[in-house]
Every structure is written in structure tokens, then in C-alpha cells.
Design a protein around this nucleic acid. Structure first.
Lengths: 252, 252
DNA sequence: CGATTACTTGACCTATGTCAAGGAGCGTGG
DNA sequence: CCACGCTCCTTGACATAGGTCAAGTAATCG
């Protein structure tokens, strides 16, 4: 894959978040991007780090996580193709959580300085990036509700709905509503604040209800409406734009 | 209180988040601010609204909340003096949660257009505002961990630690480590994802341990270290700056 | 002073966690 | 190609944190 094909993924993502002109597109394509392949289970950056560059996910799945004093690992967010996990590090020098590859990943790195320069030259880019971080925050808010207010099966269903929805937007869900989701039941447990065993049992319930199939990292949704109902899922908080309507043209 | 005294609160807050020059200060003082007094228990804005202005809290306590399909109310965040709860609405037109006054409040409103204009003229202000929303996001992340990964007493202790820490920064905690915290046990339950009764019992435990006193909306911390230990609290995620060091001078 | 709201307590229930063991799949090295 | 050793999934028995219900008390307020 050429450099240009990677930046194209970034352009598409940002255009789905905010209007960008051709000038801005060119500026994004001109960003100095370093591509890296990473194995599964690697920390990309760790809590306490002070990175000087941003990470962009092009392929694979990554997650933010943090460990409590009692040693419980809590996953806070997942990122797939097009996501910029640590965009916030442009303005928050110190990382408050760790970023982990959940699978083999292709990621890119861009120096903060380059991002800042592009943003200062192109207010549209700055707006797009800001809006991206605001959507991330909206997702965190929904996660608070998910782990704080829903029962086990609903939590898991909600999480799966979110993943499928976000992956669908970037073309990672097949016609038959199946997608590659490289998460173990233990990972789902860490993301929902449940135990391993209980996730297992809840998944069995969801299978018995005919909602999903999930094995060997392949999730298939058999009953999308049913899954959304179980998970109390309403995608509004993801602030997706209708295809064709390229974001809300808010000017700085 | 004069208009200027209110904008002064805003200036102080933003300067604690990011470097601002005298020019930027002047621009903030020039913002058209409308002050309002609100009673306790009022929705300032609601999920689904498309506000055209930002809200700033000058006095009292407000909260973001959302209600699940099963009717469980989950509080997602609290705001006190100097906080700008719905700053994100500059870029996200639709609100994904509702903002409620937990007490009598003095709030101010500034039109989005005015904020955008100030931000476009003064990159430092734009950076300060962006950084503010990023810190909010860091707090959401910590809340995910809190409700997802900690036991009841730890959750409550962590929440109280956060509130006390944030209020201390803006001078709302007295010498004797007491502060006005207008929350019922039911509110604490909604914020921690616990039941009313269990919050009651956990608070009793914390009192028995000699950590706090909490009655009639007055919280007194008797053992700050003990409370932090119980709550597994580390304030790093709040990105406070040492007094004197006015934020990290990151340029757009 | 009655009504309302918040707090407290006890009894009981259940969702979820913990522990432990077995099985299935899979990559690696001999 | 087998065998070992992973890691993950599954299941059962049991434990417990926390929820629910219900009633009573205390505080607050018009």
C-alpha cells in the first residue's frame, strides 16, 4: 500500500467528521506519515508517556485500557481503521491510559508538530480534529452509562452494537452482517466491567436468543433489531453523518 | 456581581488550562455574557436539543445525566464554578445528554458565534477551549473505570475525591477540608451506578472509618489520605497545573 | 402542622463473581 | 506428524456484593 492510500483513509475519516476543501485534503496528504506493523498484545503507548506524535489505526483493533489499584483491567475504548486514538496528546502532554493492540495492526505515526502546523494553517482541519475528539468524548459518556446503568447482557449487546456500527461506517462489515472482531471473552469482560464467566454465559444467552454468532474472532449479527433492543442501543451518540452529507459545516 | 467579575472567573479557569496573553484576556472579557439564576432540579438543556449558546457555571452544581431504556438515571459528570458543561456543543450540534442543576445555580450563556469568533481570532483561546474539552474527556475515561472496575465504597470515595479536588482548585473547599456538596445519596447512587440503599451503607462505612462527614449537603474530609486510598484516587487525570505554572504552552 | 423528601434499617433476593476443572483449538518444536 | 503447552472457552458448585422491598424516622418547607 502506498503512503497515499493510507492518508486517503485519514482524509475519508476526517471528511466524514467535518467538511474539508481540496486544499485541506492536500495538506493531509502531505503529512509526514510513518507506517508500522505491530503484533497483537503490544502496548503502543503507556500511561504516563509523553508522546511527541499521534497514532492512527489503519488496520486491526486497538484499545485504551487502565488498571485499577486492585489490579482490575478496564478497557475504555476501541479503535479501528481511520481512528486516531491519542489525538488528545496534541494538547494533553501526559497520557492517562495505555494503548494496546488487540490484533495484528497497521498503524501510522505523525509528529505532533506536523499536525499542529496543518491545523494552524487550515482552520477546517483544526475543526475536524477537535470534532473528532468531541465525538470520542461522547462515546466515553455512553460507556459510563453502559457500565454504570445496564445489566450484563445489555452491556455486552450495546458494546457489540457500537463496534458493528462503527466498523460498518468504514466498510468492515460484510453483506451477511459479519465482521472480524479480534476480542476474547476476557476482553469483552474488561470492557464491560463483568467477569469472564459471566460474559460467557451472557453470550450463550444471546446465541440462544438467535441474536448473534461469535466464534474465532468472527462476529455475525443474526438479528440486528433484536441486538439493538437488548443493548438499548441508539447510535445518535456516535454523531455519524448520512453518506453524502459531509459533516456539519461549522466554522471556527 | 458585575459582568466583569463573572468573565474574570472564566479567564482564571482558562488560564489554569492554557497560557493566555493580555490580548486574549481582553477578548474573553468582551464576550457577551447573559447571567441567569436557576433553581435546583431544572434542566438547563436536554438530550436532543440543538443549543446555539454555551453555558458556564459560576455558582452551584450541575450534572450531565442520561436515562437508560430501563429508566435508570445515570449521572455522567458534575460541574462547578468555572466549568463550561456544554462547550462541546460548539462542534456537536445535537446534545447527547441532559444538563441539570443540582442546586440553585448562577450560570452564564454565551452565543456559539461569539465563542467561535473569539477562537478564530485568538488561537490561544481556541487551544484553551479544546484543551478544556480534552480534560473533560479524560474525566469521562476515569468514570468508566470507576463504575466499571471498582467496588461500591471505592467508587463513592473516588467520586468524592474528584469533587473535592476540583472544588479545591477554585477555592470552594474550606480550611477544615469541608465543602458544600448539594448531592443526595440518591444522586451519588446515580453517579456511581449503585442503589440508594447501598450508597447509604457505604457512606456509613466511610464514616465509621473516620474518613468523612457528610450531612445536609456539607462534606467534610477527615482523612484525606485514607479517602484517596479507599477510592484508589490519583489526580493525574484531572490535568491540574501547579499554581504559578499556567498550563502547558502548546501552540496550535 | 401536614406534606414531602431524604435518610436509615432490616429482611430477603438475585445478579454477578469466584473457584476449579475439563475440553477444544492452535502454534511450536522435536 | 505428533506431542506438548498455550490460551481460550465452557460448565458446575458455591459465595457474595449489591439490589429490592418495606417500614419507620428525621429533617425541611410551604
Amino acid at each position: 500500500m502506498s503512503q497515499n492510500q493510507y492518508t486517503q483513509i485519514l482524509v475519508r475519516r476526517l471528511k466524514s467528521v467535518h467538511n474539508l476543501g481540496s486544499e485541506e485534503e492536500a495538506a493531509i496528504h502531505a503529512l509526514p506519515l510513518r507506517i508500522m506493523e505491530l503484533k497483537a498484545g503490544q502496548d503502543i503507548v503507556r500511561e504516563g508517556d509523553r508522546p511527541t506524535r499521534c497514532c492512527i489505526v489503519f488496520d486491526g483493533l486497538t484499545s485504551w485500557y487502565k488498571t485499577t489499584g486492585e489490579g482490575v483491567r478496564q478497557i475504555i475504548a476501541f479503535q479501528t481503521s481511520g481512528d486516531i486514538p491519542d489525538l488528545q496528546s496534541i494538547h494533553l502532554d501526559r497520557l492517562d491510559s495505555s494503548l494496546l493492540t488487540m490484533s495484528k495492526c497497521t498503524v501510522g505515526f505523525i509528529d505532533h508538530d506536523a499536525v499542529r502546523y496543518a491545523a494552524s494553517r487550515h482552520p477546517q482541519i483544526a475543526s475536524a480534529l477537535w470534532r473528532t475528539t468531541l465525538i470520542d468524548a461522547a462515546i466515553f459518556r455512553e460507556w459510563v452509562i453502559n457500565v454504570g446503568g445496564r445489566k450484563a447482557p445489555a452491556r455486552i449487546a450495546h458494546l457489540l452494537c457500537e463496534q458493528v456500527t462503527r466498523m460498518r461506517v468504514v466498510g468492515l462489515v460484510k453483506e451477511d452482517f459479519s465482521c472480524w472482531l479480534p476480542l476474547t471473552q476476557g476482553d469483552l469482560a474488561a470492557a464491560t466491567g463483568l467477569s469472564n464467566v459471566h460474559v460467557n454465559r451472557s453470550l450463550q444467552l444471546m446465541r440462544r436468543l438467535g441474536l448473534i454468532t461469535f466464534s474465532k474472532s468472527v462476529l455475525t449479527v443474526l438479528d440486528w433489531q433484536g441486538l439493538q433492543d437488548l443493548g438499548d442501543f441508539d447510535p445518535e451518540y456516535l454523531f455519524l453523518v448520512q453518506p453524502g452529507r459531509a459533516g456539519v459545516p461549522v466554522e471556527l
